[in-house]
Design a protein around this nucleic acid. Sequence first.
DNA 1: TGTCAAAAGTCTGGAAACAGACCATTGAAG
DNA 2: CTTCAATGGTCTGTTTCCAGACTTTTGACA
Lengths: 242, 242
Amino acid sequence: MDGSATGAVSLLRPVRAGNAFEETVERLLQAIKLGVVAHGEKLPPERELAAQLGISRVTLREAIRALQEAGFLDVRRGRYGGAFVVYRPPSPRKGDLRRAVNEMGAGGLEDALTFRMAVECGAAQILAGTELTDGQRETLAARLAGVNDAAPADYRRLDTAFHLSIAELTGSPLLAAACADARLRVTDLLNAIPVLRPNIEHAATQHAAIVEAILEGDPEGARRAVAEHLEGTAALLRAFLG
Amino acid sequence: MDGSATGAVSLLRPVRAGNAFEETVERLLQAIKLGVVAHGEKLPPERELAAQLGISRVTLREAIRALQEAGFLDVRRGRYGGAFVVYRPPSPRKGDLRRAVNEMGAGGLEDALTFRMAVECGAAQILAGTELTDGQRETLAARLAGVNDAAPADYRRLDTAFHLSIAELTGSPLLAAACADARLRVTDLLNAIPVLRPNIEHAATQHAAIVEAILEGDPEGARRAVAEHLEGTAALLRAFLG
DNA sequence: TGTCAAAAGTCTGGAAACAGACCATTGAAG
DNA sequence: CTTCAATGGTCTGTTTCCAGACTTTTGACA
């Protein structure tokens, strides 16, 4: 009477995310845009990076070359050489946001926001409910300070670092990966709206509340603070979408 | 001073999950063990399934053959033929659980449980915070009834269906996929412990509480109910681990 | 100023995966 | 009892991807 109950939502999904080359380009681009590898820094050596990504050096090199030709990387040979990030997030222009939303497809925006809400709230709540070591407390404080001291050009990057550190501190790689994934899905959107003074200040207050709740060991409070913060971001996006 | 702030936790992870063949075998096996395709039912036709999985028919056929030789599938030709599931979850034996845990590697158990806690709680909370249509309410009630009426042999399968339907009803495919993934990571563990009467009854009470909170639109309550339920499952696992 | 280690660049043979056409089998329906 | 559509089974050529050996470049350091 029930049959294939689960609707097969997840088991018939693609085994491989298409083409290895394209997937690699995408991944590297995310690392660059997200600031995992900051401007002026270089990617790990090809051999090492290929191993980490689980692809052959040939495929990786094709991806790197594509990014080089697109102006994201500057590749230098010889010892002390490497693939250097040559990219500054451009000032967002009108229409970028709309375009980014369209790229996500129908329902993609709500999906991403819902997903992010679920995993980030969960991470904060869990972290607040665990005993923290001094080292963990310091890391959290440092990341918070990092965002607060950020120059506008670095703001998104350090904001990302702050959010992800919460997930990482839970000690669950799966949860951390989910939060990173969620963040990735909204990066293009966030990069498409300007970094405004009042928004930063508002976010700073909320960030502080999140950290406070976590350090005090208040799971409910931490969850609520993150939810409020993310609601704010979502509202901001919707506002810019008019 | 900050550098590669995010620790690169997620961006240097493998682009492809190894071998397409092995990955496909794994995926199909999960679908079978999880009961997405129940005993006696058949997989979709090869051509269709290959398209859904994003792989070639050749690769899919290799995977099907492997599962056939391992005794999970019975493949019949001709019209009305197909790959029929021939598998009954065996009664768990002592030692199965330990083995399953060891297969997950160090830290894998806590990781999976933490991840599941975060995403399932998030899904329930979000669902409880949205306006539900009559259809959604009915689906939820039906799944709850399904678990309660389940024969022991079907219990895990219908329990899975219940849990996943919460995530699916949020309307966020990403969240649903995350919950499915979380569930998958504990299926082997759950299958390794016996389905005992008192546990089922206890779970039934908790399931009812979850549904009630969701239907009443009580996000906090829904979250708490799911958390309690999952804590119970986790405790059960730990108990069997001694 | 020469050395040399670490990095990118190049090449080749082979394995994995794919696309698509075609064959063989089956059992329900007419 | 014949038909035939749906399904699994097979084959061929192509593309993608890989593993690994080898070459070239570069700049810090002795």
